[in-house]
Structure formats: C-alpha cells, structure tokens
Design a protein around this nucleic acid. Structure first.
Lengths: 341, 341
DNA sequence: CAGCACTGAGAAAGCGTTTTCTCGCAGCCG
DNA sequence: CGGCTGCGAGAAAACGCTTTCTCAGTGCTG
C-alpha cells in the first residue's frame, strides 16, 4: 500500500506520505538536520522505521557527488602481497565508513588504464597497485584519476602520493647476509620482466656487486609464484650457486619444495632467501629467511593518503619509502665450501 | 570553456552543446540507438572524443536502476579460503562486465546484517560468504537482500541458492584414510566454535565413529589459523593420538611446524591431514595430505547463480553441494604401532 | 501595535543519465 | 493536392535524493 515507487522499493516519498510531511523534511530528519520540530522528527523517524526505509545510496551519491567508495586496481588478486594490501586498505577505509571496489587486471597491462578509469568514475578515489603500464601511460592518465595513490610505483605526475617498498635495499641486505655466511656464488631468481619491483631488486644487486666484486651473482629467469620456483630447480643446481635469492617467498617455497624432492639439503647444501615475509614463511621447513615488508600497513597508509586527498587536506605528498627488515630464519646457513675443508 | 557543469567534470550537456544537439540525442548515440541520423551521430561521437566524455555511472545507475556491481560479505579477508572465493567471484563477474564491492565483517556477527544491507543497496546482488549470524537472523534478512547467494550456509528463506562444501564427507574420507593406514587413535583439532563448516565436520566424525567403534577419536579445541595449530602441539602430544585431523590446512601447517621444532617426525610418529588444499599445501615439507575443495570454482559458480537471479532466469535454485576430493600426500603414513612389532 | 528577525517546513531546483512523449517534416497514396 | 504514416530529434519526465529558495507564522522589540 505504501509502496508507490516504480522500482517497488520504498523511497523517501513513501515515508513523507506516511508521516504527512514533505520529502525535504524526511531528508532533513534522516540527515540529522536539527531545524526540524522534534515532534515531527519523531513522527518521521517512526514512519521510517515502520516502513523499514533505507535511503537509496545511488540517489544520494548523485545528489552529493560522492560515493563513499574507493577503488583499487591490482595486477593479480591471487598474489598474497596484493591480498594483504587489499585487506589493509579495506580495513582502514571501513573505519572511516568507506567501502572498496576491486578491479583485477589479470596482469594484462593494456586493461589497467580502462579498469582504472571505470573504477575511478564510480568511486571517490583510487589506489593503483603496482601498475604494469608504462611510465608514459601512467603519467598521462594520472591526472584524470585524481585523487590517486600509487603503491610500489612512482610517477612524475603531480599530486600523486607514492608508497614504495625499498626492494633494492632489502635484496642488498639479504645478499649481505648470505655473503656474511661465506657464500661467494649467489644467484637471483628474477621476477616478472615488466615489474617495477623486480627492477628495483636488480638495481640493488648491481650496487651489491660493486661493493663485493669477489662475490659472483648470476641471474636466472623466473616469475612470481610457486611453480616458477619449483621449475627453477635445474637452473639453480646448474648455476652452482650456494646462496639463492628468490624473487619472493612464494618462489622460495616452490624452490625449497623442489630441492627437497631432489634430496638437496637446505640450508646444508644451498641457502635460500625469500622476500615479503608472508605469514607462511615462518611455517615452512626449514623456516624461511626473508625480508619483511609491513605489507598490510601499506594498505592502511594508502587509505590515509587517499583520505587526505579526498578531503583536500593538503597532507604533504612526500612519497613514503618502506624499509624491509631482514628476518633471519633457518633456510640460510654457512656456505658448504666454508665447512668442507 | 566547454565545462559548465558544477562538478567540473564534463557531462552529457557539454557534448550536446558542442555537437549542437540535445542531451537526448547524445544519450541515444552513446547507447547505440540507431534512430539517429548517421551524420549527426558522427558529429556527436567526434564531440565526445574531443571532450574525452565518459558517462557518469552514478547518473546512469540511477536512471537504469542497476549498478553493474555485486557485493560480497566475508567474515575475514585474511582467510585464504575467502580470498580464493573472492578471486573466483571477481573473475567470473568481470567477464560479464560486473565489478565487486567487498565488505569484511572481521568475524563480528552483529556487523554482518548491517554490512550486508548497505552493500546490497549499492549493488545489484549479494554473495554472503559463510555468515556467522544465527539461522533466525539470516532467514529474516534474506528476503531484503534478494538477489542473494549463500556460500557454505543454507537458509529456509525462499529463492536463495546455496553453495556448500560437504565438509562432513571430506572429514570422513580423511578419517577413513588414516584408519586405513592402521591408526586407531585419532584427534580432531576443531575450528571456530560458531562456524557452520566446523559443525559439519563434527557431524561427519560422528558418522565415522559409528562406523568404526574401534577407532578412538578425541576432540581438541582449536581455531582456524597457523597459530592455533602451532599452539596445539602440547595438546596433540598429550592426546596420544597418532593421526591428527586438523580443521584446515593452515592449522595443519602450524601444527607440523610446531612438531618439527619438537623433533617429532611427520608422518613417522604422527600423521597429519589438513583441509581445503590451499596452494601452499603441496609445498610444505612433508607435503600435506588434505581434502581438496574447488574453492575458486565456488566463487565462479556463485556468480553464475547470482547472474541468473539478477536476470530473473529462473535457473533452478537447487542447492549445489561440492564433494571434497581426497588428496593424499606425504604427511600421512602408516601408524607407528603397526610398524613397531 | 507595527515592523522585523527568526524559525520551521514546503516547493522546487538541481545531480547526470535514460526514456517516453511530442511534434515538425518529408514522403506516399488515394 | 490533402491527409496519413513514419522517421528523427527536441522537450520533458523520471530515477531518489539533497539543498537552496521561499514563505507563512511566531515572538520580540522599539
């Protein structure tokens, strides 16, 4: 009876009718505007409760020009790193009453710009997570995406805060750790070719090489998941390296599993390090030496930066750089060469 | 110059102005309505491209009464199971041009109904993932959430498809496997008390007990994460059981790690099984015997059910039941009692 | 007691689309 | 040659809400 609206859902008009007031008054009451007679307000509230009225957020969004929603674009939702960022972002945003819309580009760089644009138009702001697109493209679309926060990527475009993990420093710390254990032949199991974080690691290793010319560091092709590590067993054994820097924890775990199948002892014969310190890293056998990045904190920080932009708070846009913390566990040990004689 | 709109963004009006036509015509062109003179259509399209016009989805949603977005409510985004479901759902929905909005209830049952309602109003449909709320509450709010799909939960409310994993059968299969290896003293490391999937496992074990009265099955308190398993080491050793059914793979991994620290051999002294077959399960040492749940397929199926409801396709609402598949790996072996003599 | 400020609520104008309604105009048939 | 059909495009309504504008009514002050 009260439902007259075309959509079948009860709207503000139904409440107004029942309470015998105008739409405007109902809106005022629902938004806690105090220029309403308490008695009328009570009548409106009663009608609202009775009809189980819930304001339509789409109408609200249109009128207010905001959606209370933010978007996040990730290259691959299956990656624990991005899952953790998403989790941190979602939690932090929820505390401020914001929801998050996700867009997975499935590692297809050409999709990113489109997804980002679509997501942005539905949201009040956007987080672009480790985008795979080119610098030029990123810089070009960045202005149209504002408010925008970047994770693990920087851009020359103005007003775009970046949160980046210092993978270069982290990989150097790991390499130093292995060198300190006497390893003189290291190998790096590289990540996805286009990845900016892989580039940072390579730069870090270059710096390490310059500092330690006596240590040999060979490069092996890889990827970012279990299987990559598992399939790299032969390449690793062929390399003759005794210390392996895996692109991340997943690759390290795949590699350890493969070496175990071959009867190679870790860290007896070969030492392995990961990167990220995903929760699983402390439960592998042996437990995994890695570089810990405060990853879900990153998600939270991303929200805080984005919130500042949305509120136009002019928080300084200085890029934030996260230092990984060396997490020494059981997968790394003295070089067998040191023990042999 | 072309931008007259209050929001600063260019709208349909700007395009209309530039092309010298009305809003209506622009809308018709943008939506591929062919009752427009090709020449005018071309002019409009040109103007749209020149102004980089992109229709505002909020206005569109209001007019069309749909958002091309679905929501998912999960109890804990940190749980790999829900991450996998989210991934499957997101991928499947994206193929049909839908986005997904996430809501994390952080295991607070009282939040679920509110989150679900809010999410639902912003979306065209909702997936409720293993809700922790009571049956009564679920049944009460279900109608207001339609189109709704449940995962790992059922309800008496009409028109709500359910996708449930048969945890009872899975745990029985695992128990049978251990019994077949000669184990006569088993222990179940239980999950969260309120969890429906834990209840199903308990029912399954009850059936198993009835079938195998000679096998002792003790119950140990637990949870659903690594730490739970790690902390359960003492309880497990005290129980004297030689076959441990962990609530899930995470718990199993925590337990294996703890036993390893104590020098207990797996499966030499104690056999362990997990549940879920998360990707990590095949990379632990020893690799984990578990019951595989086609979890991201579940997410995809959830979308297909939801899509049918949204399109009012009257796909039969018969609940779908997924049978876990026993995945025998290296963490389970013959009972030490069988070998001793 | 007249005029004024002030309060509170309705009317109406957005917000940016889509879609129905309406109408001018050209073409066609009788 | 007049009326009817049909096509194409503009005007306007609708979607559901917020907010400004407007105005009636009250109470206060000079």
């Amino acid at each position: 009876m009260a439902r007259k609206s075309a959509t079948g859902r009860i709207g503000i008009a139904d409440v107004a009718l029942k309470a015998g007031v105008s739409h405007a008054t109902v809106s005022r009451v629902m938004n806690g505007n105090f220029t309403v007679d308490p008695e009328i307000a009570a009548r409106v509230r009663e009608a609202a409760v009775e009809l189980k009225y819930q304001p339509n957020p789409v109408g609200r969004s249109l009128a207010l020009g905001k959606t209370d929603t933010i978007g996040i674009v990730v290259p691959d939702l299956a990656n624990p790193t991005f899952q953790a960022i998403l989790r941190g972002l979602s939690r932090a945003a929820a505390e401020d009453g914001y929801r998050v819309l996700i867009a997975d580009s499935f590692e297809v760089p050409s999709e990113e710009a489109i997804l980002a644009g679509e997501a942005r138009r539905r949201c009040d702001g956007l987080v672009l997570c480790a985008p795979r697109m080119t610098d030029a493209e990123l810089e070009e679309i960045a202005p149209s995406l504002h408010p925008l926060v970047l994770i693990n990527r920087t851009t020359a475009a103005a007003g775009v805060p970046s949160l980046v993990v210092d993978y270069g420093q982290g990989v150097q710390d790991l390499a130093e750790h292995l060198a300190g254990l006497g390893h003189t032949r290291l190998a790096f199991l590289a990540g996805p070719a286009g990845s900016a974080s892989n580039r940072l690691r390579l730069e870090g290793l270059e710096a390490f090489r310059n500092r330690h010319p006596q240590v040999e560091v060979s490069m092996l092709d890889g990827g970012s998941d279990f299987d990559t590590g598992h399939e790299a067993v032969d390449a690793v054994l062929d390399s003759g390296a005794t210390g392996i820097l895996a692109f991340n924890d997943l690759v390290a775990m795949g590699l350890m599993s493969g070496l175990h199948e071959r009867g190679v002892s870790v860290p007896g014969d070969i030492s392995i390090t990961g990167f990220d310190d995903i929760p699983f890293a402390r439960y592998t056998t042996p437990t995994l030496t890695t570089a810990a990045v405060p990853i879900s904190e990153l998600g939270g920080q991303a929200w805080h930066q984005l919130r500042a932009l949305i509120r136009k708070e002019d928080l300084e846009t200085a890029d934030t750089r996260y230092q990984p913390r060396l997490e020494i566990r059981a997968s790394s040990g003295p070089s067998p060469a040191d023990l042999a004689p």
